[in-house]
Every structure is written in structure tokens, then in C-alpha cells.
């Protein structure tokens, strides 16, 4: 690390600081918005995302809510964080963050290769995007912010994209193969069709439900602990009667499970299911056979 200090110029450091600041700025922005616009509540209300404004659109009004704003903020953060990680990247590592960047890339590569096979090598940025977006969206709850993953529309959009990918890769093996897939045991064709469409729905609801239930339980626990404190300290005069004794510390411990662990786990589960479903519906042998057949036909035509 000695020679690296010589390499780092003032300009390099300034760019570093700027990138880090831009990574954290969206978080600050979200907290500011939250402080400015979130109405005070007594805690027991369980509601969805706050609506900032509505744009009239055909079919349905386009609602810009906390979920959208927070998703974009997470994306901007991730953009600048990846810029920060790859800033000053070199063949001979001179920054410690390069190891983190390489580790991330290698881990997702390994994950994708292990679960999907070498054909889907290009999927690792996509899996990385799912992991990053999902995990950091859920982790926003740590700042007391609304987690976009507890909005069915957000997770539903991802699940829809995964469904499109599944269907796309199934069709790559030919429409005949796609249709035949539903008649695998011929009698169960209706069930197969239902399960095909149930896949994205179940994925969306699993993720959304887990994160939402975590925040619901957090709210309920907060209220319950407040009630417990009231029972214990209610006889005290003045401000002391409302002192939230049990809300000190205990919700933080629960938040480790419901926000950190559950959020990361759900991100991982969503990514795993994406990989398994996309590669599961795709038959590499069938794809290669079809490709060879098409190439042969083309050769025949030209000859």
C-alpha cells in the first residue's frame, strides 16, 4: 500500500470524495423527504407508500409514490457506488475497494455459473442488479424509510421481468418445445399452465409479503412495547408517564432480524428463484439442435 499513496493525486481523492458523497446523497434526500412529508401517526396505522403526486395517464393514473422515489434513489446510490468501486481500478490493485469490486463480480459470476450453467454467463450483472436493488431497498427500513420492496408493484415489476425472461428463453428452444412443455404429463396440462403464470405471482408475493410482514410486525411490536411501558410507568407524573422505556433497544434487536436478515435473505431468494426458473425452462440441447437445423437450412438455401 506504500506506493499507492504516491499514485493517489489530489484530483483522485477529490473524485473519490465526490463519488462517495453522491452515493450517500440519495439517502440524505430520502430522509429529508421523509421528514418533510410523512404525516405524524400514532403508530398503529399500516399503510402503503406515500403518494407524492399523480400524473393522469390512460388505463390508470401514474402514481409517483415513495416506492418509486426510493427505488430511484437506491439506483442512483448504486450507480455512484459502482463508480466509486471501479474508480482507479488497475491490473495491479492500488485501492482496497478494488478487491471488494472483484469479489462481488466473482461471487455473482460463480453463483450464476453454478446455478445456470456457462450458457447464461451474461446473467451475472442482472443477478447482481436484483440482489443490489432488492437488498438495499429492504435495508432502507434501517433508516426508518419506507422500503420499496414492501410495495407489491415494485416487486411485481421485477417478477414480471423474470416471467418475460423465462418465456423468452423457453421460446428460444422453439414454439413446439414451449407448447410441449405444458403437456409434460399430458393430463396435468391445465395445472402446468396455471403454475406457469403462478411463478411470477408467487415470487412477487413472497418477497413483498416477507418485507411487509416484517414492517407490520415491527409496528405492532413498537405499539405493544409502548403499551407495556405505559402500564409500567403510567402512574408517574407529567412527561415521565409517556416514557417509552421498552422501546429503547428492543426494537433494534428485532430490526436486525426483520430488516437486515429478512431483507437480505429475500433478495437472495428472489435472485436464486430467478436463476432457477430462467435456466430451468431452457433446454440447451434443444437450443443447439434448433440452431444447427437452422444453420443447415440456411446453407441449403445459399447452395
Amino acid at each position: 500500500m506504500n506506493d499507492s499513496t504516491q499514485v493517489k493525486t489530489v484530483r483522485f481523492r477529490v473524485t473519490d470524495a465526490l463519488l462517495l458523497a453522491l452515493t450517500l446523497l440519495p439517502v440524505v434526500f430520502m430522509i429529508t423527504l421523509n421528514v418533510l412529508f410523512t404525516p405524524e401517526s400514532n403508530g398503529i396505522e399500516i399503510e402503503g407508500a406515500l403518494i407524492y403526486f399523480t400524473i393522469p395517464m390512460p388505463l390508470q393514473d401514474l402514481i409517483i409514490s415513495e416506492s418509486q422515489i426510493h427505488s430511484w434513489c437506491v439506483m442512483v446510490s448504486l450507480l455512484f457506488f459502482s463508480l466509486y468501486l471501479t474508480h482507479g481500478i488497475a491490473e495491479k490493485p492500488c485501492t482496497r475497494r478494488q478487491y471488494l469490486a472483484e469479489w462481488m463480480v466473482e461471487q455473482t459470476d460463480k453463483l450464476v455459473k453454478g446455478n445456470m450453467g456457462p450458457f447464461f454467463k451474461g446473467f451475472s450483472p442482472f443477478v447482481g442488479a436484483i440482489l443490489g436493488l432488492s437488498a438495499f431497498s429492504s435495508l432502507l427500513a434501517l433508516f426508518g424509510l419506507y422500503a420499496p420492496t414492501s410495495d407489491i408493484n415494485i416487486v411485481g415489476g421485477w417478477a414480471l421481468l423474470v416471467f418475460i425472461l423465462i418465456t423468452y428463453y423457453k421460446f428460444k428452444c422453439g414454439p413446439v418445445h414451449y407448447i410441449a412443455g405444458f403437456f409434460d404429463p399430458p393430463l396435468l396440462a391445465p395445472l402446468n399452465v396455471i403454475s406457469e403464470f403462478a411463478t411470477p405471482v408467487s415470487m412477487a408475493f413472497r418477497h413483498y409479503g416477507n418485507v411487509l410482514s416484517g414492517s407490520v410486525i415491527s409496528v405492532l411490536l413498537a405499539v405493544a412495547l409502548q403499551g407495556l411501558s405505559d402500564i409500567l410507568l403510567g402512574w408517574l407524573p407529567g412527561v415521565l408517564s409517556g416514557f417509552p422505556l421498552f422501546r429503547i433497544g428492543i426494537p433494534a434487536v428485532l430490526s436486525i432480524y426483520f430488516d437486515v436478515f429478512s431483507g437480505c435473505l429475500q433478495a437472495f431468494i428472489f435472485a436464486m428463484l430467478t436463476m432457477l426458473y430462467v435456466s430451468g425452462g431452457f433446454s440447451y440441447d434443444e437450443y443447439m439442435r434448433r440452431k444447427a437445423k437452422r444453420a443447415a437450412k440456411k446453407r441449403e438455401k445459399t447452395a
Binding site: F37, P39, I46, E47, G48, A49, L50, I51, Y52, M57, L59, Q60, D61, L62, I63, S65, S67, Q68, S71, D151, I152, N153, I154, V155, G156, G157, W158, L160, L161, L212
Partner: peptide, 18 residues
Amino acid sequence: MQSLGVISLNIWQIIISL
């Protein structure tokens, strides 16, 4: 300010998320 319901489907939001 209003809030959305806990379950409220909006096609545009889904497309934005996608």
C-alpha cells in the same frame, strides 16, 4: 398527503419498476 393501500396494483408503477 395520501398513502396507497397496502395492496394496490398500478400497471404504470409495475412498468416503472420493471
